[in-house]
Amino acid sequence: MKLQDARKDLLAGAVFTGFGLAFAVTASTYDIGTALRMGPGFFPLVLGAILVLLGISIAVKGFVAGEGGDLGTVPWRSLVLLIAAILFFGATVRDLGLVPALFVSVLLAALAGRGVRVVPAVVIAASLTALSVLIFVVALQLRLSLVGPWLGG
């Protein structure tokens, strides 16, 4: 059962090792230079290697100690909805304009809540969109078009 228990540290170690490798490998395609005349690749390459070592140490230590603890629940539905909300805003705010992009994003976000039904979510989205326009466009005078070119705005 050791492996089962240490899952968390093994995973953490794997994540760090993965990032370290990705950075180090990419960095090695840049000019490395030498320690005294560093090129753009030197610093990330060294750090990537250090991160790989740290990642392995974390995993090994976790495995030896076998003390990982439980991961707990992951709110997958909420996670997907929230990320979708953020990405949607970024992708469409320019072309749809602030109001529609924000409305959809906040609606998606609101639906990420537990047991939130569609109608209350629409109310939340509409009110927050109005509030945001008041704060950011009217009060702070940000130059964002309210309705974008896709909607003929």
């Binding site: 466009v137 009217v138 009060a139 130059r143 309210l146 974008g148 003929g152 705005g153």
Partner: peptide, 29 residues
């Protein structure tokens, strides 16, 4: 507070919001 801190050129907060809308309208057409 914004009445004081507003750009001198703009006529009012409403006016500015309207100007933004106009800008958006121009952008498309």
């Amino acid at each position: 507070r914004y009445d004081i801190a507003r750009p001198r050129r703009s006529r009012s907060v409403i006016g500015l919001a309207a100007a933004t809308l106009t800008l958006a309208a121009c952008g498309g057409g």
